[in-house]
């Protein structure tokens, strides 16, 4: 079977894809290891995993779960202060994965700018800006 010549993909596209792909895999690996640390030393958590699932399956809302199991919600970026905690480490994985479009879009914008494709540079920065504003709590979609 003859395979036709493969079309060359634009640099911005391959860079965007590669960053999203590898950061997502890193985020996944962190989220695989995090629960093991969490269960291995329940005291080394903001939320004790053995108490957490009961509270969730009792239908309690998020605020109550954090209050009853962890004392209080320490904020979405709590992993920055509790990186050695099981759930802190897991939250790092979640945060990394949930911000991946920001890093990838910045790189794609740089690549578009280098290729003098300014319209898509601006669009990439616009979407990256929305992600950044959402991360600091200014823009929320849902």
């Amino acid at each position: 079977m003859n395979v036709p010549e493969m079309p060359q993909m634009p640099r911005a596209q391959t860079i965007y894809g590669a960053i999203v792909y590898w950061v997502t895999i890193l985020s996944c690996l962190i989220c695989m290891i995090g629960p093991v640390i969490s269960v291995a030393s329940p005291d080394n958590n903001v939320l004790d995993p053995y108490k957490l699932f009961n509270a969730i399956f009792e239908g309690k809302d998020a605020e109550t779960v954090w209050e009853e199991v962890g004392g209080d919600f320490p904020g979405g970026h709590f992993y920055l202060k509790h990186l050695t905690y099981g759930d802190g480490f897991t939250q790092l994985g979640l945060a990394l994965g949930c911000s991946v479009a920001l890093w990838a879009l910045i790189a794609a914008a740089i690549s578009y700018a280098a290729d003098k494709i300014y319209f898509y540079t601006a669009l990439s920065l616009w979407v990256a800006g929305l992600v950044a504003l959402s991360m600091v709590g200014i823009v929320g979609m849902h």
Binding site: A95, C98, A101, V127, V131, S134, G137, V139
Partner: peptide, 9 residues
């Protein structure tokens, strides 16, 4: 990536 952060925060 925009929509998920309010929930995380």
């Amino acid at each position: 990536c925009i929509g998920v952060w309010p929930y995380l925060l």
